[in-house]
Design a protein around this nucleic acid. Structure first.
Lengths: 92, 92
DNA sequence: CCAATTGATCGTCGAATTACGATAATATGC
DNA sequence: GCATATTATCGTAATTCGACGATCAATTGG
């Protein structure tokens, strides 16, 4: 990852949270510590493929991490990245 | 404005800050208290019309307010809305 | 090894975003 | 009233987003 202007870094993180489905996913993961993809799909009124795309966007932003766990994929919050966003917002 | 699900409210505010130019505008206004449109344009590598569009997006989100001041338009941060976003992020 | 389960990826479509130049609107100052 | 300055809006083109169904890939259980 090349070094990023802070405004770009902030914008990238903000944009990752710029969709209600992604906000709900993050909120769910914050409350659950970790969650398998299928459970996340069950919590949203969206097709599995759509949720998968949102998960990909969140993962690319660094806000969540994921790992294969048997036939499933487990996701969780990357608290240091989320903390970074909070930090950037507080000192904006 | 109809009542909004909190995740949608959060997403709307996050999306408003989901572009580096808008982050820079907000940052400038935080530091300056208030600023006339022309000064904002001078701080960004973008055409006047593009900056005007970004200002409109920020105004629609509620994060900034604006008021005509002679032939100019003065913009400033709406701290209660920005505070609301901070609050939502902290208790996410 | 096969069928079933789980999740990612592909292809596609309509809608939204971002950028710009050109133009319109408004206020000021002469 | 008129020219100037300032900002918003319009029209447009290129790109990205968001949604879906269909399909592919990988793992598990039998």
């Amino acid at each position: 990852m090349p070094e990023l202007d802070w405004a770009e870094e902030f914008a990238r993180l903000a944009r990752a949270l710029g969709h209600p489905a992604r906000v709900r996913i993050v909120s769910l993961l914050v409350r659950r510590n970790s969650c398998v993809c299928g459970e996340i799909v069950d919590h949203l009124p969206l097709a599995q493929s759509t949720v998968s795309q949102h998960l990909k966007i969140l993962r690319k932003s660094g806000i969540i991490d994921g790992e294969i766990d048997g036939p499933r994929v487990c996701y969780w919050i990357n608290h240091s990245v989320l903390g970074r966003l909070r930090d950037l917002l507080l000192r904006l």
